[in-house]
Write a protein that binds this DNA or RNA. Structure first.
Lengths: 142, 142
DNA sequence: TATTGTTATACTCTATAACTATA
DNA sequence: TATAGTTATAGAGTATAACAATA
């Protein structure tokens, strides 16, 4: 299949192509831990923000409260996080269990190895440049 | 929400962040045409590959035959493409109708404007560099 | 046997809306 | 009144499996 000249030169289309490949690579890299990239991301976000609420987590994951709850349910069901009491009794303070800390360390290793493998076709300078550009793209004001 | 140092520095995570933003931008840019980015992509791929089969289209879209058929059903139902007879009587030869040609031109305009808006935070040289890197990432052998 | 299109079915992810309990 | 969490329900997108027609 050819790609029309218009499409092939568009960054939006290239992002559209690269994303599922990167997602599949991450999925495969995490398969032995039986966790999806989205849930692994949630775990690492909770580790970086101990005591955060489910709503805040949902905001960072770009999902609503209802969807965030399902992710939290799953991670809690596996004993990786706990819903600790919060200063605001309406909310939960999410935090990793010791099992979750160990698991998150395993996730780190798997993702770092995947990072090297998937983006290895780029030089170190290119990876740095790409990282900077992607950060700029999503950090700008909407 | 903070992002753990491990996560923030990973290209995979940055792609994971930028993709939904780019998708949302494309969705909004195409909203007045009442078509989703995936279906618009299918239309442009058929235009670039007149006479292609549904299976070939599905391959380019990374979906299976069943899902490709639903997309083709929708585009045909809107009168944008037709299922023409193919040399292989098992297959259909997909092609744009004249209405589809006009519509695809509108899609071109919308996507080009979106491209300028969304990636406008990058300089022309950066956009060129980013395009080249993304192409290299998905063109490599699996 | 393998492939194209088709159909029916199921699964995953996410969203919406309504409810409760707090603030 | 506004917010956090919860629950039930619905939708979109995709996958699987089986089938008919044809290679």
């Amino acid at each position: 299949m050819k790609v029309g000249g218009d499409l092939a030169g568009q960054l939006g289309y290239q992002v559209q192509l690269v994303h599922p490949m990167a997602h599949e690579a991450a999925r495969a890299a995490l398969e032995h831990l039986d966790i999806t990239p989205a849930r692994a991301t949630a775990l690492l976000l909770i580790r970086a923000n101990p005591g955060c609420s489910q709503s805040a987590l949902g905001g960072a994951l770009n999902v609503n409260r209802s969807s965030a709850m399902k992710i939290v349910d799953l991670l809690e069901g596996r004993g990786l996080i706990r819903r600790a009491p919060s200063a605001d009794p309406r909310a939960h303070a999410l935090e990793l269990t010791s099992k979750g800390e160990q698991f998150a360390a395993d996730v780190d290793v798997a993702l770092e190895e995947n990072e090297r493998r998937f983006f290895g076709v780029l030089s170190a300078a290119e990876r740095k440049s790409l990282l900077e550009m992607l950060q700029r793209l999503h950090q700008r004001a909407p």
